[in-house]
Simulated scan of single mutants.
Amino acid sequence: MDKNQSGIEFMKEGKLDLAAEAFHDAINENPDDPVAYINFGNVLALAGSDDKALAFYNKAITLDENAATAYYGAGTLYYSQERYEEAKKCFELAIKKGLDTTDNYFMLGTTLMILEQSTKALPYLQRCVELNPSDAEAIYQYGLCLAQLKMVEDAKTQFEKCVEIEPNHADAYYNLGMAYALQDNGEKAIEMFEKALEIQPDHEYTRNAMKHIEVIEE
């Protein structure tokens, strides 16, 4: 087993020190291999050494400008640091360089949502759901995007799929309630809000929405 593969196995086992050592050896053996730098960057990211991880991702990109997973790795770090414009650019480059994965589409879609670019986010979240139709969180984010674009009935469909897969998804029930409220179905909206509160009694958005609905009902 080569050093990169050994390091990956150590990472799976949570042995980050041994993984770092293996990737360090891989770099020494082949200093022009971008994969080893990406792997070392992944270990550093898991260890919370963001700046060092970025340096390794950038080194991989210097060696191979088409190193798609390096762009993705850098994007996740920028995202965690709330540097969303930089994260967006990295995720877009990862796709351009050929990274066709649910994780990358999800991260780009959610980043665009945060940047209030829902129209741009929609196809990426849709693609993510197409690739993994059992991912409750991806389905939820796709529904949220549809809701923001005022495609309420389509959003409802996605929120319903989400709670079928993840019955304890309070946010999905809250948004289902909001969708029904927008369609003037107060009774169904309250039913959804009550389910959200059963799951998460301190869900403030739901409590506020319930008060508003009750006022209207009166």
Rank of each mutant, 00 (worst) to 15 (best):
D17T: 06
T119W: 02
L18F: 07
F10K: 03
D202Q: 10
S80D: 11
A67T: 06
Y142E: 07
V163C: 02
P34C: 07
I114T: 14
K97R: 14
K120Y: 10
E204S: 09
M151Y: 10
S134A: 12
N30P: 03
F91Y: 15
F106W: 07
A172P: 00
A47R: 12
K15D: 00
L149K: 03
L115W: 11
Q117T: 05
P201E: 14
L131A: 02
L46P: 01
E204Q: 14
E65S: 15
T111K: 04
V43Y: 03
L99P: 03
G143S: 11
A136P: 00
K96A: 13
K12F: 09
A68Q: 08
Q183E: 15
S80E: 12
N28E: 12
I165K: 09
T76D: 08
G73T: 14
E217D: 07
A68E: 09
Y180F: 13
D51Q: 13
A136L: 01
Q200G: 03
Y57F: 12
P31A: 05
A196W: 09
L197G: 00
E137T: 10
Y37T: 03
A70K: 11
D2P: 01
E187H: 03
A20Q: 12
D100I: 07
E164F: 07
D135W: 12
A55I: 02
P123H: 02
S118T: 11
I139G: 04
V215E: 15
E218Y: 05
D154T: 02
N39D: 00
L115F: 10
Y140H: 13
A172M: 02
G73N: 15
K120A: 15
Y78R: 09
A170N: 01
C162T: 15
G75Q: 14
I61R: 06
E153Y: 07
L44N: 08
Y37F: 15
A209H: 09
Y142W: 13
E21K: 14
A53P: 00
E21T: 13
F159W: 00
K161Q: 14
G177L: 09
N208E: 14
N168S: 11
C128W: 05
G7A: 05
E82W: 04
L125S: 07
Q5T: 14
G143F: 09
I8R: 05
E86T: 02
G14C: 08
T157K: 02
I199L: 11
F159L: 03
I8L: 10
N30Y: 03
A209Y: 09
G109T: 08
E164R: 06
E130Y: 04
N175M: 14
E160H: 04
R83D: 12
R207D: 01
E166N: 12
E198Y: 03
Q117I: 05
C162P: 00
A70R: 11
A181G: 06
P34F: 08
S118W: 09
F23K: 06
N58Y: 13
P123E: 09
D32I: 08
A67V: 02
K156G: 05
I190N: 02
Y105L: 02
F193M: 10
